[in-house]
């Protein structure tokens, strides 16, 4: 399973997105855009889950904002620190 696939499953499972499957999330679509509709509380949960499952910390907004643009940017951020 690729990092992107792991992230999609993680987001769907831990954010309880019952109306969407991991496969329906596109690699480049904005995480906080209209389709997924995530919000700031989800962002905090993603930070926690990424640290919990990948051991990679997102320290602050400066790191977090560019890293959490999409599945691809988040995967690249994680892989660069593994």
């Amino acid at each position: 399973m690729t990092t992107q696939e792991k992230l999609k499953k993680l987001i769907v499972d831990t954010l309880h997105l019952e109306d969407i499957t991991p496969e329906e999330i596109e690699d480049d679509e904005p995480l906080f855009g209209e389709k997924l509709g995530l919000d700031s509380i989800d962002a905090v949960e993603i930070v926690f889950q990424v640290e919990h499952h990948f051991g990679v910390g997102i320290k602050d907004m400066k790191e977090g904002r560019p890293a959490m643009q999409s599945i691809n940017t988040l995967a690249a951020f994680i892989e660069a620190r593994l």
Binding site: I41, V44, E45, F48, Q49, E51, H52
Partner: peptide
Amino acid sequence: PFCSPIQFS
């Protein structure tokens, strides 16, 4: 020790 923010809230 980890603590899910949603679970905590």
